[in-house]
Write a protein that binds this DNA or RNA. Structure first.
Length: 129
DNA sequence: CATATGACCTATG
DNA sequence: TCATAGGCCATAT
């Protein structure tokens, strides 16, 4: 929807984030891999930070690989993100949520099979470009 | 151009 | 569980 921002390098990242469904979460590294930026999890954080106004992304559904919110605990951003997630039925326990329970997996049909396996093994970066 | 920093990740001890 | 180290790369100074 929103044309003309296809010029941004972060377009693919935004596209992926936009697909995370209600009540589900994804990690930065996961987003990076799906967007074809294996190993560049940091860029996902940057992409979200520089999200243009008007682009209504479910940014709160992106958390780190430890199942924790990546903002400093107690910061306004931390609280906002946690509220949004809890409002979607996601429960926290000791500042952490259960990734095995809430992690989003893109539709099996549209995903290369090696992705799911990679998620299981998930111990190596995808080849870049 | 050289460093430092960051909404990160994995491996290892 | 925590700490350290190495990797990735766009931005800031």
């Amino acid at each position: 929807m929103r044309a003309d921002m296809s010029s941004s390098k972060y377009q693919r990242i935004w596209d992926v984030v936009a697909e995370i469904p209600y009540g589900r979460v994804a990690s930065y590294g996961q987003i990076a891999r799906i967007a074809g930026l294996g190993g560049q999890a940091r860029q996902v954080g940057y992409a979200l930070h520089s999200t243009p106004d008007g682009l209504d992304l479910p940014w709160h559904r992106v958390i780190n690989a430890q199942g924790r919110i990546s903002f400093p605990k107690g910061s306004p951003s931390y609280r906002r993100q946690r509220e949004l997630l809890e409002a979607e039925g996601i429960e926290f326990s000791n500042g952490r949520l259960d990734l095995t329970a809430y992690r989003w997996q893109p539709g099996d049909a549209e995903l290369p099979k090696e992705y799911l396996e990679a998620e299981q093994n998930a111990r190596k970066f995808s080849p870049r470009r």
